[in-house]
Design a protein around this nucleic acid. Structure first.
Lengths: 317, 317
DNA sequence: TATAGGCACAACTGTCTGTTGTTCTTAGAG
DNA sequence: CTCTAAGAACAACAGACAGTTGTGCCTATA
């Protein structure tokens, strides 16, 4: 591909060979191999060089695009000058949506979105942030009770509210809102999560606070299977983040019902290094701070005891 | 790349090898080579298979994108099921803009836009259309006097009007419109074009009809150089299609002045095969017919004598 | 008609890729 | 705690492949 593009750019095999530091015959072989593989003639050989055939002209922009993608791919793992890397835990949650709108507002910033696995020890992503291989991650700061992990900086991003997700036959399906107390009589299905992970600790404490029955879905066949189960069940319900994005067929007729009085919120913090940060990180942090400011104060919210903050607080070390 | 993606998809080297019909050791070597080339660890080897490293997770979407682009590139030259290929003569002219809006309206149709060189014999693109390597091209139908070339089908697309392009010091710079008669006293610069090509015949006849002085710009340093010359000159002017797209620095202060009474129009026809056409071609033809219908009738227009049609006519064989 | 620019073919060589055979590590069972 | 089996890496080797040198052919231009 690169050879073909070089030939097109220079207009002749010899010059392309000089640019690529191979001989003219080598170029000839490479182009011939590409043409044989594709089964078409890409270049029309003339007495004074070479010009594109019809197929070559159609192929050329695709070849250039391929080289661009290849360069971007290589750049994505080069330590210096790689794209900004952000861990969103899970592409369905609100943080992913936040990052998506950030990308729309700043399309010029190259962004790689990761979902690092939640391991039992919980600090896998934090280790990556410390090591400098990830620039920012989102945490609930359970284990550190609102304090920044050592060597890292943190700031509140949002208080994620919850919806109850139920099928049309569920007893609460017609409600326009429910309270945590209402949920005490209905089993809540959730996927298994490590007990000492932040979400694990959060939902365990939520269940204790309101005497909820949380059933672990096993085996875990994925979200699609869970949604399918919910659609046909008159008993099953699950909790989802308000900002999370789930899609289901319209025939499922699932309902999202806000949970209020109090509204359990999942506190999401951005965690990142302070020194030697990625040059684009400050832009993202500014964006998050701005969005964070619009989050209302903590009236009628429920947060677990280990959360140090009961409302948005200033960013701090 | 393909091997790396296969490993990620299957979760283990052996299964990836089976899918690619090579041994587990071969997969191991390929991935190791990729990692060595990139200088990072992409996959974390575990006792029960393999999982993505942080770098691997950032790299994966780029790798998938690369494979997609590669498949598209290969598909662009596969005779069956390739993208719709349209020759627009020149990316600056109105036909290119027309095709761009077609693409915006039908983003689902894969489109390859070509600019086949205008050769002296003039029918190079027509040959490609007959051969089936190009699906549609735009012509003025000079040589055939409005008749469809044998075996091909044709229809009017638009009557392209002209603007006079001049710098701020040109005598006509302040006019809001000019007539062809006005131009008789001012030299018109144009690039050399083959005398028996359709644009060549068109502008020769236009010059004769209104006693214009057409100077050939030589040597041809490209459009940028021409625009630069125009900007500083009090004598030079050129004719450009109304729908053509030229960009210049604001400091040039060039003006586009409509040419009217009569308005010389360049008649553009779509030429394509009738039988065994590309499945997407009818969609493009429908789009062109629709746009064509909005073109006003031929009052105050000038067309060369060899143009059989003096206004839009129905599409015909 | 002579010349020179430019590409393809042929023969050869060194590297590289993929294979077989084997070892090392580790999760899970007994 | 030990055994077993799954799964990846290492080593040695054979075949393929890419790139080099040398040469011939074609054609635009003088």
């Amino acid at each position: 591909m690169r050879t073909f593009v070089a030939v097109v750019d220079t207009g002749q095999f010899q010059a392309a060979g000089d640019r690529l530091s191979i001989t003219q015959q080598g170029v000839s072989k490479r182009v011939a191999a590409l043409e044989r593989e594709l089964g078409v003639l890409l270049l029309v050989r003339t007495a004074r060089g070479v010009r594109l055939s019809v197929d070559g002209q159609a192929f050329l922009p695709h070849a250039r695009e391929l080289l661009r993608v290849q360069d971007r791919a290589a750049a994505s793992v080069r330590p210096e000058r790689r794209a900004l890397r952000v861990d969103v835990l899970n592409r369905r949650i609100a943080a992913a949506g936040l990052l998506q709108s950030f990308h729309q507002q700043h399309p010029e910033i190259a962004l790689d979105v990761l979902t690092l696995p939640v391991l039992a020890d919980g600090d896998d992503a934090l280790t990556a942030v410390r090591a400098g291989t990830v620039d920012l991650t989102f945490r609930a700061l359970a284990t550190t009770a609102g304090q920044a992990p050592s060597g890292l900086r943190t700031g509140p991003v949002l208080h994620e509210r919850h919806d109850l997700l139920v099928g049309p036959q569920h007893p609460l399906a017609a409600r326009d809102r429910v309270t945590p107390a209402d949920l005490a009589q209905h089993p809540i299905w959730m996927f298994a999560m490590p007990a000492d992970s932040e979400p694990g600790a959060y939902y365990r404490e939520l269940a204790e606070a309101f005497s909820l029955t949380i059933d672990i879905v096993a085996p875990n066949f994925g979200n699609e299977a869970l949604l399918d189960e919910l659609a046909g069940s008159s008993r099953l319900a699950t909790l989802v983040g308000r900002g999370s994005r789930y899609l289901w067929p319209t025939s499922y007729d699932l309902r999202r019902i806000p949970v209020v009085d109090p509204a359990p919120v999942f506190p999401l913090y951005a965690v990142h290094v302070e020194q030697h940060a990625h040059p684009d990180l400050p832009v993202l942090l500014d964006y998050l701070r701005e969005r964070c400011g619009t989050d209302e104060a903590g009236d009628g919210l429920w947060l677990p005891a280990w959360t140090a903050l009961n409302g948005p607080a200033p960013w701090r070390a």
